[in-house]
Amino acid sequence: MSTLILASTSVYRRALLERLRIPFQCLAPHTDESPLAHETPSALAIRLAQAKAQAIANMHPQAWVIGSDQVVDCQGQLLGKPGNHERAVAQLQSMRGQVVKFHTAVCVIAPHFCEVRNVITEVLFKNLSDATIESYLRAEEPYDCAGSAKSEGLGISLLEYIRSDDPTALVGLPLITTLQLLKQSGFPLPLQ
């Protein structure tokens, strides 16, 4: 039986991967997520997804390992998880009325296989009032989400549109892409 490991402790990524009904375990990769000087959002997401997968693959070389990371690009400014209310307010204020790009990279490492892809999701935020931002943050407290909004929850009301080839990418793990990479790597998938 093939062992599948998600190199993440994210409850969001875990819930997404559970949708596939494939047994897996989650392990924390303990990687430094600091951006390098002059690193683009795409390059950062790709590097971190691969670093997370590689950290776990080094400990479990016979397993299939999935690593993923998301970086938010708001008019050239990188946004991460706000961590608290004040930073979440600032993030949502900076994104109001803006098209924001979410770079969600996924890497699959398996014996004799390593591939990484980046899925870009474009999101147009409404021109949000400070009162709307405050009400939303008090209701949902999305302080552990890059970009300070949960599109799978009440945060959807803050958006004009979401454009992506892989709809789960915005939540943190592009499942269509993940399945493509698992299939390429030879992992036995259900319904295949």
Rank of each mutant, 00 (worst) to 15 (best):
S94E: 15
F24A: 08
I162D: 14
C74N: 14
K126N: 12
Q98M: 11
G97C: 07
A28L: 05
A55C: 11
K101T: 10
F102R: 01
E141D: 08
L191I: 04
L128K: 15
A7M: 08
A110F: 05
A51G: 15
H30L: 05
Q184A: 15
S10L: 06
S34I: 00
L128Y: 15
R21M: 06
L175P: 05
E115G: 14
D130H: 14
Q70F: 02
P167V: 09
D69P: 01
A43S: 03
M1D: 13
Q93G: 02
I46H: 06
G153R: 03
V71M: 03
A105T: 01
Q192N: 06
L158A: 02
P188G: 04
L179G: 10
K150F: 02
C74S: 14
M59F: 09
S42P: 10
I56H: 00
H103K: 11
L179E: 05
P82G: 11
T40K: 12
D69L: 00
F113E: 07
N118A: 08
L191S: 02
F113W: 09
A131N: 10
Y161H: 15
A88N: 02
Q180F: 03
A131K: 08
P142W: 07
G83Q: 04
L48R: 14
A90F: 00
E33N: 04
R163H: 14
Y136F: 11
M59P: 00
G67P: 01
T104H: 03
K150L: 05
V100G: 13
I46V: 15
R47H: 06
